[in-house]
Design a protein around this nucleic acid. Sequence first.
DNA 1: CCCGAGCCTGACAACGTTGTCCAGGCTCTA
DNA 2: TAGAGCCTGGACAACGTTGTCAGGCTCGGG
Lengths: 345, 345
Amino acid sequence: MPETNLRSATRYGTRPTMKDVAARAGVGLKTVSRVVNGEPGVTPETERRVQESIDALGFRRNDSARVLRKGRTASIGLVLEDLADPFYGPLSRSVEEVARAHGALLINGSSAEDPDREQELVLALCARRVDGLVVIPAGDDHRYLEPELRAGVATVFVDRPAGHIDADVVLSDNFGGARGGVAHLIAHGHRRIGFIGDMPRIHTAAERLRGYRAAMEDADIPVADSWMSLGVTDPERVRRAAEEMLSGPDPVTAIFAANNRVTVTVIRVLAEQTRRVALVGFDDIELADLLQPGVTVVAQDAAAIGRTAAERLFRQLDGTLVTPERIELPTRLITRGSGELPPAD
Amino acid sequence: MPETNLRSATRYGTRPTMKDVAARAGVGLKTVSRVVNGEPGVTPETERRVQESIDALGFRRNDSARVLRKGRTASIGLVLEDLADPFYGPLSRSVEEVARAHGALLINGSSAEDPDREQELVLALCARRVDGLVVIPAGDDHRYLEPELRAGVATVFVDRPAGHIDADVVLSDNFGGARGGVAHLIAHGHRRIGFIGDMPRIHTAAERLRGYRAAMEDADIPVADSWMSLGVTDPERVRRAAEEMLSGPDPVTAIFAANNRVTVTVIRVLAEQTRRVALVGFDDIELADLLQPGVTVVAQDAAAIGRTAAERLFRQLDGTLVTPERIELPTRLITRGSGELPPAD
DNA sequence: CCCGAGCCTGACAACGTTGTCCAGGCTCTA
DNA sequence: TAGAGCCTGGACAACGTTGTCAGGCTCGGG
């Protein structure tokens, strides 16, 4: 009874299946499958009839069933910290582009820097049977991923290494970048240089701090505790931290801001100062060149990081890649003025 | 033979199923299902045995199979133009937050402003049987969505209305915002005001242009063709357009930049001018307050737009919502200096 | 005229889960 | 002590698709 099928197909909330299409076209179920998937072995005339039914019923293949049968979902998951952060936009975009080139869709979620939420998200993605995962870790223990890795879920960590498991990592040379940025300030005559960064439990923050210390040590400059502020990111506390190191008994003449959010706040604080204080920031920020002075930064290439990670992911899926590796991408110092100001005591 | 099950379960690329877990725990398949889903009717002792098997095998429920059986995927799709655009980051984030609150995951894709790609993406998402779609349309004909809507896929369009179908839309008051922004310039004494915007086939661009014209007409100012530049967005052409309207025979004393990308380029051009030219931009940009002068903008609330759209989506899914509606969110004029400069002839 | 080859086509099982339904064992009461 | 009712657990079908395999048809050659 084709009429019944038609009615059930157009009833709200019900979708036509291949069975419905087959019934309407008066062919077998498998023939419809062949047409839908462009498999050979169907007469043009039969194909036409099937296609007509498909269009008439508005049939759309159910990929859930397909996945169940085939095993691959053609989708990959991206877990990052916050989509609204300007660093992750381009990263996410470049991951998506690579995914698209491989015919895969991108599912993404934000961990909000919360390890539990990261795990919850990752496992939800695994339950959907994503073929691969790109993870910007919030937590530092990823042993919960072991069964997934064994099951063949391709995984690449980004921006920070995985904890307690052996997996691919793609990140910036945070240590080298920070060291270079601070050395740049030292080269312009600064000795009292402040550092404002995130909690050292975050890998990037720790590495950048290490770079700062290394650069100071290279120049034989002992670091005063009052020059360092760790674990502050919210604008209010960054502001206080900056003001303190500028007004203390041993005031800094330059500040190294260890990420883009910190940099932005520090710029605001410095704009209010009468004294000219030098600034180098980690991460580029938009319009940095239009400010007075332009903001000198150590820039990461977010798009390149995303692209590299995604490409490795698909090479894992190809089977081209077996041994986990750690890939460090170089950073680039962009001088625009704020980092070249001389010390003003 | 539990040993066989165990081996097959840990073989690379194969995952344990509920059957494997059941065999290992010595219970029935359905009992495992009950434990996994927290259904009642399982003795604590049995539950413990099952849980132990789950942990030992690293079992993870296969949501594809679940979806196939239940019909709902607990995921929604978001199709936007470009994730890297600062306007879409917060929007995407707020959509994700609402989705999360409803226990759904977010799948997103970028259309790159290409109608074919938009359709391809949307249909791919429908094939995955997402429960709902949030679409920032690139094309202007969405009749291809009719079968999906009939099938009960909740759909909300954002930023621009759908073409040729009746669906929910959430957008900013582009017309009113632009009109207000231009009126603000007029109120500060400007009469020769330039307009640089996107192709009028894009709804937002057309509306903002209409707002510009309306404000000019309200003030009885005839608009010269040379003051308007439509359909340019790439920096090079925006730059040329701006320079032309600043140097022509009838040079403008103020510019209304109809979106954030245009605004940024115009700022660069104006910074090179000796003459002080007023500027109002549509869309806020980061650090706008730190520039000299601060940039006056007509700001949209991207997060509110995303939240509103996603909430409507889930209300559609609840059944609370039936009739499609058009929701316009107000914009906000933020004065920072550039829009308050007097005309300099 | 018959037979084999080759091409279309369709019946059927399987993917892993959940909903339905029933069986068996237990407790409690008359 | 027997019957009723409850609680736990399991067998089975179904979701919509794809892979396997076999059957029927046509065509050409012997």
